[in-house]
């Protein structure tokens, strides 16, 4: 079987800082990592490969430095990696990105048919959760989002059964392959690759496709031109106009601090006092 896993290299959002003057992202010292949600997708694809054999191809669209993320995926056990990189992609929003990736995957399918496409549930930098559904629609594939478990896969009948996280419960869904799965976080744990994979990843001759190589003929569909959304303003969150009212006592004894705080809060918010009394009563 052949799975394609779409990943993205992202700045570690936990370590991001904003330039206080220009409000731009200061990338210095911020490590670039594989979007953590994508690792659940990759591991699931690798598990299917363990069971059924076959090939796992990892694809990313990004700048040349995204190579590191792809090599890392190879070291976990992915077989092939393709970096789709071209200045023409700059400024792509989710709609344009899903077009570029869907077209790339079509090109991959030309060489080897694809059974499943995996993505993470969203990225930690954009947080949109739109590219996965976008790819599925463009390929006219069934879309299975927030999958928590692959219950059954029948390659001959081309059928797959999954558990999908829905509002208020779990859906047990059955559909036809090929389809696109966005994997829910926490559903598996990424493996520690063995030495052979590590050596292979280090030596792998990475495929870098530009726009033409990826089969994207229509330049109007990507980049700023192919993006209906336009970022009109970027700014830092507004600080609240007033700092917290600090509660202090002469001795700063915890007990006195607590009593002083309560008196203050309840005087200024009598409704809140009633609410708490009602619940406790």
């Amino acid at each position: 079987m052949h799975s394609v896993v779409c990943i993205k290299q992202v700045p570690d959002s936990a370590q991001i800082r904003v330039h206080p003057v220009t409000n731009t992202i200061m990338r210095q010292g911020v490590p670039a990592i594989i979007n953590p949600y994508d690792l659940f997708a990759l591991e699931e694809a690798l598990r299917l490969k363990d069971r059924f054999g076959g090939t796992v191809t990892v694809v990313t669209m990004g700048p040349p430095m995204a190579e590191a993320a792809l090599r890392k995926c190879l070291s976990y056990g992915a077989d092939d990696a393709i970096l789709v990189s071209d200045r023409a992609f700059a400024g792509s929003d989710t709609l344009a990105t899903s077009y570029a990736l869907a077209t790339t995957i079509k090109k991959i399918m030309g060489n080897m048919p694809v059974d499943l496409i995996f993505t993470g549930k969203q990225t930690i930098d954009g947080d949109t959760a739109q590219v996965g559904p976008g790819i599925a629609k463009r390929l006219d594939y069934q879309l299975l989002t927030y999958v928590s478990k692959i219950v059954d896969l029948d390659l001959e009948k081309k059928e797959i059964t999954v558990e999908r996280r829905a509002e208020g419960g779990v859906q047990l869904l059955k559909t036809a392959t090929p389809c696109l799965i966005t994997m829910l976080e926490g559903t598996n744990e990424m493996r520690f690759g063995d030495l052979d994979d590590l050596f292979r990843a280090a030596r792998y001759d990475l495929k870098v496709w530009n726009r033409e190589a990826a089969g994207i003929d229509d330049a109007e569909m990507i980049g700023l031109k192919g993006s209906p959304t336009v970022v009109s303003k970027v700014f830092a969150p507004r600080p609240r106009s007033q700092r917290a009212e600090m509660v202090e006592t002469v001795d700063n004894d915890p007990k006195n601090l607590a009593v002083t705080l309560l008196a203050k809060v309840f005087t200024q918010h009598p409704k809140l006092e009633k609410e708490i009394a009602k619940r406790a009563g």
Partner: peptide, 9 residues
């Protein structure tokens, strides 16, 4: 965006 570090319109 970027984990809440920035807002964008």
């Amino acid at each position: 965006t970027f984990g809440g570090s920035l807002l964008c319109t």
